[in-house]
Design a protein around this nucleic acid. Structure first.
Lengths: 355, 355
DNA sequence: TTGTAAGCGTTATCAC
DNA sequence: GTGATAACGCTTACAA
């Protein structure tokens, strides 16, 4: 009998879930429970023979490890906390999909939090997450408030900021430059000969504002900027919001011949509004969106948009986090995944000479 | 000194996270740690005076409870496991949003799993979730495999099946009848005078199939059913898939004058395809979708669809789970949230006499 | 109402 | 390579 008193102790116990424990497996396999623990976590460190006996016992008992006990004993949970600002926005559903897929079948769990674009909520959720001693944290954006930022810095685990890049990462960053993206779209509309290029934006979170800043910079440089061309709202983005923003814009600037939308929902709304109003796209007005949702390519006309690497951001954020957890730590790494302007029918008109 | 040796023990400790514990709070407040535990979980059971001293100590120390320790000691985690088949599909993002919002700020955590429409994956994830001893489980659909169903039955916690209703709930159910929804749309297109009504479907998960069955039943009853009218694929749904399914359907049945789409993505694709082909909607062809995404109402023409209570399903599923956790158990409850046909321009043509 | 004692199931530590 | 022992931080059971 190699068995210690592990299992006897268990028999006397008054509480418990009734499910098999490490000690039960150990008893059945005739080894100490710590050996079972090792065999499960790092099989290399246990002799092949015991390894097999243990595997058999695990199978017979249908043993499933208790993650709470593991977390308590090791002072760290196999959980990655993920904070996103929205679940409605399909941009973030694709990020989440990338995160899930990036996980593969490694034994890490994802814990989501929806901040609803609120700094206070982000701080609150972070506090909750930190209470679990997560293995890593993934947060959206680079504009955390001072308290949140400090909490992240003192989190004691890898932190990945996603969606955007900037000069001063808490730890790691992965995304692209929204300012540049805004510039590229604006330049494109100027190149195809648009004179009065409007900007439509909803939500206007920090990333939206930076895309707007890119637009404004290019427009000023071309001496075409006009505040009346910018129409925004802090309300959430939607296709119908695209319709109403477009109507507002037309009221202010009836001579509009190009519209840059802060995302594809708005662009689709503008397209529908043009259909209804009998405006020819792109002959009378050009439309550009942002994110390049799948539908942009098959819309009629197809809509120019900026392809953003949403899925990749999620997937690689997890990869970076896992690498950091495993000790391969290129800390303070900033990864620029770039973006790609997809030029489509909605902006394909012959360039018009400047005068 | 009311303090026991709690804190002294802690000082000798060799492990630990360095973060304040219940015992530290107890020491500072001059009470036993169990009193702090009670004060935190059920303030009513502690005298106002101690309650206040404890609150002060918690604040001073910045104490955050350790959920692993709690879960281990109480043999149950404050976690609700949620299994959905997809994160891409915006139907489920709205369910998730409802779930999050239904939670409010109660101290329950959500653990998501994405089954990717796979029974095996569902079973695997369920096994993982069960290992955490969740407080409740929410699963999508009513077609779990036998193993999964048995695991759910033996889970020992409330189980809510969502999205659909059926005769034999594991525990609780909330959703609506997809068969009826399919029937209602088919009847509507017949009512507006369509003769050759096609059905377009992607993914074809069990709910899709039941909507198709509803369509087929009504079409047979009207003696208009024709297998050539049904065009489906097991590939995921998308707007571009709507375009290609529509092309396929037109090849088989060029006399198509109505299209019922299994969801709104497909319907949007059909609308775009009609635009490109110069087909007038609804004059030459009627289009109906499913789910009533926000964009259906502002599309041009606006698209008839079936409004489904996705957000409500999520929200009420959580409410039901919470009620059951709290012991108010109307077990084996089936809640039918219904649906609503939204008739819009895409099917608004004068009814044509039968001959 | 409050406290004591004894676990919950696992892992870190150190000895063999 | 393997094991006994003592935590990990909290809650249940029972006593006062």
């Amino acid at each position: 009998m190699a068995s210690s008193n592990d299992s006897e102790v268990r028999n006397r116990s008054r509480r418990g879930s009734g499910r098999p424990t490490l000690a039960d497996v150990a008893g059945l396999a005739g080894v100490g429970s710590i050996t079972v623990s090792r065999a499960l976590r790092d099989p290399e460190r246990v002799s092949p023979e015991l390894r097999q006996r243990i595997a058999a016992a695990v199978n017979e008992l249908g043993y499933v490890p208790n993650p709470s006990a593991r977390a308590l004993a090791s002072a760290r949970a196999d959980v990655i906390g993920v904070l996103v600002p929205s679940l409605t926005n399909n941009v973030f559903s694709e990020v989440l999909r990338g995160i899930h897929d990036g996980l593969g079948n490694c034994p890490l769990q994802i814990q989501f939090g929806n901040t609803h674009y609120s700094d206070e909520e982000e701080e609150r959720l972070l506090r909750v997450f930190l209470g679990q001693r997560p293995s890593a944290l993934i947060v959206s954006g680079i504009d955390q408030g001072p308290t949140t930022r400090q909490m992240l810095q003192e989190a004691g685990c890898p932190v990945v900021q996603i969606m955007e890049i900037g000069p001063d990462p808490v730890d790691m960053m992965i995304g692209f430059s929204h300012l540049e993206a805004g510039k590229v779209v604006a330049r494109h509309l100027i190149d195809v000969g648009c004179k009065r290029i409007g900007f439509l934006g909803a939500r206007m979170d920090p990333r939206s504002r930076r895309r707007l800043a890119g637009y404004e910079a290019v427009m000023r440089e071309a001496e075409r900027f006009d505040v009346a061309l910018v129409t925004t709202t802090i309300s959430p983005s939607s296709v119908s919001m695209g319709v109403s923003l477009f109507h507002k814009a037309l009221e202010k600037t009836p001579d509009l011949d190009g519209v840059i939308c802060n995302n594809d929902d708005l662009a689709l709304g503008v397209l529908f509004a043009c259909h209804r109003a009998g405006l020819k796209v792109p002959a009378q007005i050009s439309i550009a969106g942002f994110n390049d949702l799948e539908m942009m390519e098959v819309a009629s006309p197809s809509i120019t948009s900026v392809r953003t690497p949403r899925y990749e951001i999620g997937q690689r954020a997890i990869a970076m986090a896992r690498a950091a957890i495993d000790g391969e730590r290129p800390r303070r790494a900033v990864v620029d995944l770039g973006f790609e302007l997809k030029i489509r029918e909605s902006t394909m008109r012959a360039a018009v000479p400047a005068f």
